[in-house]
């Protein structure tokens, strides 16, 4: 699926999906009788335009014998989590065509039992929304995600590859588009005038293919 026009990001729907995802994790934990504070990570990858769409769930549940009934519940939970994550990836891709033009990976770290309201941490293409801090209240997380989507919804997709801080890669049509996308995900504060004026611009570099240049060494 190639997504070219941006749709408005539905924050309520995203919140409902994430709440459901969090609930599913607790159903599974209850099934296993686990009370640990270890976090679960649900991740989904979408490579739009090709068939590669995957889902993965890393949990810290003990390996144990389970009744057939338990197995059925566990499988149902995994199915539901897979559907939610796939839907979330689709939502993000539809709201930001720039993200749909490249491999889009969404990770959600969740299942923190010490809070009443769901607390979670979201990473898009390995870039943690809101920095590297702890998990946040679901409303803060949705707010960050929604703001990021609003800021990049008009960024034009492209095939030029830009690298930030020697680590993260964003594909875009222009350096400005890539910079805007990276800043929206990793440094949302940069969009505030008082912070942007003081902040040092994030270093960026365009990655170029070398094959032709290496062969050219023999030419001269």
């Amino acid at each position: 699926m190639r997504i070219s026009t941006a749709m408005a990001f539905d924050r309520d729907q995203a919140k409902a999906l994430l709440c459901d995802l969090n609930d599913q994790v607790f159903i599974k934990r209850k099934l296993f009788g686990v009370k640990s504070r270890a976090k679960d990570v649900a991740s989904a990858t979408g490579l739009f335009g090709s068939a590669e769409e995957t889902y993965g769930h890393i949990n810290h549940l003990p390996q144990m014998e389970m009744s057939n009934h338990g197995k059925l519940i566990s499988e149902a939970v995994e199915d539901q989590m897979s559907k939610i994550m796939t839907e979330l990836v689709q939502m993000i891709a539809q709201s930001a065509p720039i993200l749909a033009s490249q491999r889009l990976e969404v990770d959600v770290i969740l299942g923190l039992p010490k809070f009443k309201a769901p607390h979670l941490k979201m990473l898009i293409n390995d870039i943690p929304l809101g920095g590297r801090g702890d998990a946040e209240h679901i409303d803060d997380c949705i707010s960050r995600l929604g703001n990021a989507m609003d800021r990049i919804k008009h960024v034009e997709p492209g095939i030029r590859s830009f690298e930030f801080q020697g680590w993260h890669t964003i594909k875009a049509a222009t350096p400005e588009g890539a910079y805007r996308t990276y800043a929206a995900l990793a440094y949302p504060g940069m969009f505030e005038p008082e912070i942007a004026e003081k902040a040092i611009p994030i270093p960026m570099a365009e990655t170029l293919e070398t094959d032709a240049y290496q062969a050219a060494l023999l030419a001269a």
Binding site: F162, E163, P175, E176, A178, Y179, R180, A183, M190, F191, P193, A196, A199, P201, I202, P203, M204, A205, E206, T207, L208, E209, T210, D211, Y213, Q214, A215
Partner: peptide, 21 residues
């Protein structure tokens, strides 16, 4: 040839930074 290292062109990001606002 198969292990050719990529080239990175360092792009001044000041203009892109100002464009955020």
């Amino acid at each position: 040839a198969p292990h050719a290292l990529p080239i990175h062109e360092i792009i001044p990001s000041c203009a892109a930074h100002e464009a955020l606002l």
